[in-house]
């Protein structure tokens, strides 16, 4: 038991150190490609070292527990948005024939399973939007984290050449969502695929 605790402690120490080292700055004003989506962020962002999948990149302004800007790019038929980490909670797969209502459910269930399946996500306000010059769509998300923290989100998606691209912004409803949404919208408007 003592051994286990020791091991956990060392692991925790190592991962926290590694975490600090690997965060990198995404400077404002210059174009940068995030998993095939090129954007020009008007403000500085921090790129997280977290690995949720080969085609996923996470940025944050105030820390990942408060806000996350998730880029998911080039998801092909049969692929999942995030890598599955729990056999009992398989990630749903993208299908090239999917329409906006299907993608809405796909994003919702993927995000739910990422949180261990124990949260209920509501989505609403699905509407068309221009994404990188082509027809795309967006919708809103609402949920409580397991800790009880209320989160809100905005998802922007497009299917281009049978591949799915998503920019997903989630943040604490209190202050952070409203604070960063205008910046996220500007960033989204700069997106090119």
């Amino acid at each position: 038991m003592i051994k286990q605790i020791k091991r956990l402690f060392i692991l925790g120490l190592l991962s926290s150190l590694a975490g600090c080292v690997q965060y990198s700055l995404v400077p404002a004003g210059s174009a940068v490609s995030a998993k095939g989506i090129t954007v020009t962020p008007p403000m500085d962002w921090n790129k997280s070292p977290a690995n949720l999948g080969k085609k996923v990149e996470i940025w944050t302004r105030d820390g990942v527990s408060l806000d996350q800007l998730i880029f998911i790019g080039g998801i092909s038929d049969g692929e999942t948005l995030f890598k599955s980490w729990n056999k009992a909670l398989p990630m749903p797969a993208f299908n090239a024939g999917m329409l906006p209502n299907d993608v809405e459910d796909l994003v919702k269930t993927s995000l739910k399973n990422l949180a261990g399946g124990e949260i209920q996500i509501d989505t609403s306000n699905l509407k068309p939007t221009e994404f990188g010059g082509t027809f795309g769509f967006e919708f809103e998300l609402d949920y409580f984290e397991k800790s009880g923290l209320k989160k809100r989100g905005n998802a922007f998606a497009v299917i281009k050449d049978e591949q799915l691209y998503v920019i997903l912004f989630t943040a604490a409803d209190l202050h952070y969502f409203g604070e960063h949404l205008p910046e996220v919208r500007k960033l989204f408007e700069s997106a090119v695929i």
């Binding site: 906006p100 209502n101 609403s124 306000n125 699905l126 509407k127 068309p128 769509f137 919708f139």
Partner: peptide, 9 residues
């Protein structure tokens, strides 16, 4: 419906 715009499209 909240997805009215999508459906109208």
């Amino acid at each position: 419906a909240s997805d009215k715009q999508m459906i109208e499209f």
